[in-house]
């Protein structure tokens, strides 16, 4: 997964996208990418994004719910939060129903990902996308769009889990722990939040998790960075 490494050349990639022949919503999304070298954490507009999926394999499983919420470092705009249920092409496995609590019957009347894609892209447009565990959001979006439209939809994101890993799994102690197969500090969303005094949420939905992710980034920036820090230092 070279495209998710921090040394991936996003400049070059994004520039090349503008040369492609893309649907209007996708083109507009790329044209308004906020990515530039001088953008600071404090000045950026963000949007936290979270998916619920039928499983963990982006090639076989599908997105069934999308939640997002726009925010700045000071305020998370819950009033502008959005949520979509998305009808998957595969059926739901029992175990995933247990996790996200969404059942087949709720999804039979839901639109497909293609139906809602323009709305989702519009909500993301011009904003820095923030996720917890970039693999899920990035790969599922990539595969779904690739499969249906044969378009490669990739863009930089901020991953609060990667920030957490960098903070809490670096250093010789943790390297030693890793070698000895000892437990490393958990960087799951709930555990990461607890380190910053953020409350534990009882309910899991893509919107709640998007809000939880936004809160986590606000906390991480207050703890680890300054508002003047450059965004390019942490996005991937």
């Amino acid at each position: 997964m070279g495209r998710s490494r921090s040394d991936f050349n996003w400049h070059q990639y994004l520039a090349s996208k503008l040369e492609e022949d893309l649907p209007q919503s996708v083109m507009s999304f790329y044209r308004n990418q906020p990515f530039n070298e001088s953008l600071t954490l404090g000045a950026a507009e963000y949007v936290a994004l979270d998916f619920e999926t039928t499983g963990l394999d982006p090639e076989k499983d599908d997105i069934i719910s999308i939640g997002l919420v726009p925010f700045s470092l000071n305020r998370i705009k819950v009033a502008q939060a959005k949520h979509w249920l998305v009808r998957p092409s595969c059926s739901l496995s029992e175990e995933s129903v247990v996790i996200h609590g969404i059942t087949d019957s709720e999804l039979t009347d839901a639109p497909t990902l293609l139906d809602v894609m323009d709305e989702v892209l519009l909500a993301l447009e011009g904003k820095v996308v923030v996720v917890h565990h970039e693999f899920i959001e990035r790969e599922f979006l990539y595969h779904s769009i690739k499969e249906h439209l044969n378009i490669e939809l990739l863009f930089p994101m901020i991953d609060t889990m990667a920030i957490e890993a960098l903070q809490h799994r670096k250093g010789w102690r943790n390297t030693l722990k890793k070698l000895l197969n000892l437990r490393l500090p958990s960087i799951r969303l709930a555990d990461s939040r607890a380190r910053y005094g953020l409350p534990r949420y009882q309910l899991h939905s893509s919107v709640t998790d998007a809000i939880a992710t936004a809160e986590l980034l606000q906390a991480q920036v207050r703890y680890l960075y300054s508002e003047q820090a450059l965004l390019s230092g942490i996005w991937r």
Binding site: I76, A79, I211, A214, Q218, R222
Partner: peptide, 30 residues
């Protein structure tokens, strides 16, 4: 619940200073 905004404040930082403009009712979530 659908109308609110959320903000995180690090320990020992000001949320409001005297005379500042205020346009929200604030609730301590945690």
């Amino acid at each position: 619940a659908c109308s609110i905004e959320i903000g995180y404040y690090r320990e020992n930082t000001d949320i409001f200073t005297f005379g500042e403009e205020i346009h929200d009712l604030c609730v301590v979530r945690s």
